[in-house]
Amino acid sequence: MKKITIAIMIIAIFLAGCSRQSTTEQAEKEYKIGIMLSDAGLGDESFNDSAFQGLEQARDELGVLFDYKEAADGNYEEKITELVKEKYDLIIGLGFSVKDALESVAKQYPEQQFLLIDEQSELENIISLTFKEQEGSFLVGMVAAMASKTGKIGFVGGVDTPLIHHFEMGYIDGAKHYNPEIEIVTEYVGSFDDAEAGSAIAADFIKNDVDFLYHAAGFSGFGMIKKAEEAGVFAAGVDSDQFFIAEKTVVTSMLKNVNTAVFQIAQTLQEEGSISEKSYLFGLSEEGVGLAPIRNITLTAEQQAAIEKAQEEIVSGKITVTSEKENSQ
């Protein structure tokens, strides 16, 4: 009996030692993340830069290594394949424009784990991470309706897709929630990297008495903001706080906290060694979207209270924000 007891104790000690060794090895491993940026690339003052900031935070606070790829020629598949061959623990595809290429590569490398941001995939080795952009845009719409003197506000979209409809429809809902009589005009650039086209659309809007502009158009939206600055009308940025693009023009921005989401994914990777969840959805309640500080206008106490109340009611489910256009593809 004593021999059996001693044997059990030896096995238990051995297993405990193995467990400690495994945990230590996981903690000591340097995890590597590769990211395929979307078409506008680094320096867009928006979506790409925000994701990059999240990876920088993961590097500085967690010791996670990372690198990025850009595809000016649109050949995402080639660049994603390069990331696979460079042996990253997780490869991120940023934006819906990357989806087809990411899925193509994922099928060729089923053992590689991928993360697709801003779109959903059914492939087993692709994790999907999306946002409730309509919720944050609802709050921007309320601010726009509060700030407008002409009763006309505008929205500039990049590419006309269901994702960008989230921003547009939320903006419309929020504006009409505060002022049912507000007039909203919308137009799509057809691109996320054409600042001149964004500027031209903004100029047309402004000629027709639009005095507040909001965009979901990447670098095309940069052109919109600069035209608003030139004309002396207000604008709202998107994805990150774009106040510093035009400090007398940008009233607020719809924060799409891609940096927060990317950092959380990196943290999970480091702690668990892989990502077990198949999908993530970030809205107001998860602090995935929100409003940047309001500048250049002063809200009344009643207006500030209205925004806070709307946010609470969205989180509680009392307000359901429209995210899709009727008959949209």
Rank of each mutant, 00 (worst) to 15 (best):
G74S: 07
F96G: 07
S104A: 15
E82C: 03
Q112H: 05
N125H: 02
I126Y: 00
F96H: 14
E82F: 05
E119H: 14
E122T: 12
L83T: 10
L83G: 04
E86V: 05
Y88C: 01
L123Y: 06
G93K: 06
I127C: 12
I127S: 05
I91W: 07
S104R: 12
E78N: 13
F114C: 02
D73R: 04
Q113Y: 09
E124D: 15
E122L: 09
V98T: 14
L94I: 00
F96M: 11
T130D: 11
L123T: 03
Y76I: 03
I80C: 08
E103P: 14
S97M: 12
Q120R: 15
K79G: 04
S104I: 05
K87Q: 14
S97K: 13
K107F: 00
L102V: 06
E78V: 14
I127G: 03
Y88W: 06
D100C: 01
Q134Y: 11
T81I: 05
A106T: 01
S128H: 07
L83V: 04
P110R: 00
G136W: 00
L116M: 13
D118G: 10
L116Q: 11
L123F: 05
D118N: 15
L115C: 15
L116F: 10
Y76H: 07
L129E: 07
F131P: 09
P110G: 06
E111D: 15
S104W: 08
N125I: 03
K87P: 05
K107V: 00
G136K: 00
Y109M: 04
E78K: 15
K99D: 04
T130W: 00
A106H: 09
K85F: 08
L90T: 08
E103Q: 14
S128G: 07
I92D: 12
L102K: 02
K107S: 05
P110V: 01
G74N: 07
K107P: 00
T130V: 15
L129K: 01
N75C: 03
K132T: 08
E86F: 02
Y76R: 09
E78P: 10
D100T: 11
I126P: 10
Q120I: 14
I117L: 13
E122S: 15
G136P: 03
E78G: 09
D100V: 12
L116V: 04
F131A: 07
F96R: 03
Q112G: 11
I80F: 11
E124N: 13
G93S: 09
K132R: 13
E124I: 00
K99R: 15
I92G: 11
Q120G: 02
E77H: 07
F114P: 01
G74W: 09
S97T: 13
D118T: 13
T130I: 14
Y76K: 01
L123W: 01
I92W: 11
T81K: 13
F114A: 00
N125T: 01
